[in-house]
């Protein structure tokens, strides 16, 4: 219980170092190349040498992967032109070389200062992801921090074959404040952290099938979670899409009128809400299974 290094506390570079096989990471467009955003510089906003995303190739458990980690603290991990080009390029390379691609997500979506190029980059990356999927090249998103995956990056994450999440991770399209702004504080109080995590957090996403693995908040657990999916892929076909649509309709019918996220947990088999709230990763998974 003491002294563990939590995955969500690491920087993007530390996350990569912690999950890649020792010394195996080779960075593409590393900081000394100084490929930074010209737009931020013009606006008087500090730039970063990696423009908020570290990309490269590495091995995980001996298997070759393309690996990227977004830098959440840098403009919210948002996708600008350079950041977006690195992201798109990596997934394109994965499709070209038929090597699995792992993205450690930490982004609120498009960088407003360079909107169009961010939008285009996300769309192009999605196309590259689907190219990978058509070729059965695994694509995996890891969502493990409160910055999480929102906006275009929320959508992009769900385009990947698999999502590995921790209890700290959040996944959605509109962020809590935006939802509150449009729906009203009564419908969704963004200051209610418990509500926010119970609607967009890793545990709920796992229960609803939006996350494929829920793991402890440690680098080892995240690496094991990724490894589980490196040899697999999930089919993209009309049948699969239709089946997913059916599932979503069922979900809406079952929970559409629910006003309390605990009702969703209950409905998904979680009996002891208090114990489940405190449980992490596989312990939570076990509690949820027991109720089914």
């Amino acid at each position: 219980m003491t002294g563990a290094i939590l995955f969500h506390e690491l920087t993007a570079r530390q996350r990569i170092a912690a999950i890649a096989d020792k010394g195996s990471f080779d960075e593409l467009l590393p900081p000394p190349e100084r490929i930074t955003s010209p737009y931020l510089a013009q606006l008087g906003i500090p730039v970063s040498f990696d423009d908020g995303i570290v990309i490269g190739h590495a091995r995980i458990g001996g298997k070759k992967v393309y690996l990227a980690a977004q830098v959440g603290p840098f403009v919210g991990g948002a996708v600008g032109e350079i950041h977006g080009a690195k992201l798109t390029g990596l997934f394109k390379a994965a499709a070209r070389d038929k090597i699995p691609c792992v993205l450690i997500v930490e982004s609120g979506g498009v960088r407003l200062h360079e909107g169009s190029s961010g939008e285009i980059a996300i769309a192009e990356t999605m196309r590259a992801i689907f190219e990978c999927r058509a070729l059965k090249v695994p694509t995996i998103a890891v969502i493990a921090t409160d910055i999480g995956a929102y906006g275009g990056i929320g959508i992009l994450s769900t385009c990947c074959d698999f999502r590995v999440m921790t209890e700290h991770g959040r996944l959605g399209i509109s962020g809590p404040i935006v939802i509150e702004k449009w729906m009203g504080k009564k419908a969704y109080d963004s200051a209610n952290r418990a509500l926010v995590w119970k609607t967009s957090g890793g545990k709920t996403k796992y229960l609803l099938g939006d996350a494929d693995a829920l793991v402890h908040d440690t680098a080892d657990a995240v690496r094991d979670g990724i490894s589980r999916f490196l040899g697999k892929s999930s089919a993209v076909s009309l049948t699969a899409v239709k089946a997913r649509q059916k599932e979503l309709e069922k979900r809406l019918k079952k929970f559409g009128a629910a006003t309390d996220p605990d009702a969703v947990w209950n409905g998904m088999g979680v009996r002891n809400i208090e114990a489940a709230s405190l449980a992490s990763g596989p312990e939570f998974v076990a509690l949820a299974k027991r109720g089914k």
């Binding site: 219980m1 003491t2 002294g3 939590l6 506390e9 409160d146 209890e167 200051a191 209610n192 952290r193 418990a194 926010v196 995590w197 119970k198 957090g201 208090e274 709230s277 405190l278």
Partner: peptide, 26 residues
């Protein structure tokens, strides 16, 4: 640190600590 968040304090207390809602994200 013995724990990095409030949830860790609740775990250390064996569930006996009930943090105020503004600190709860679970």
């Amino acid at each position: 640190l013995a724990t990095q968040d409030i949830k860790g304090l609740v775990r250390w207390s064996n569930g006996l600590y009930d943090p105020p809602s503004q600190f709860v994200d679970w």
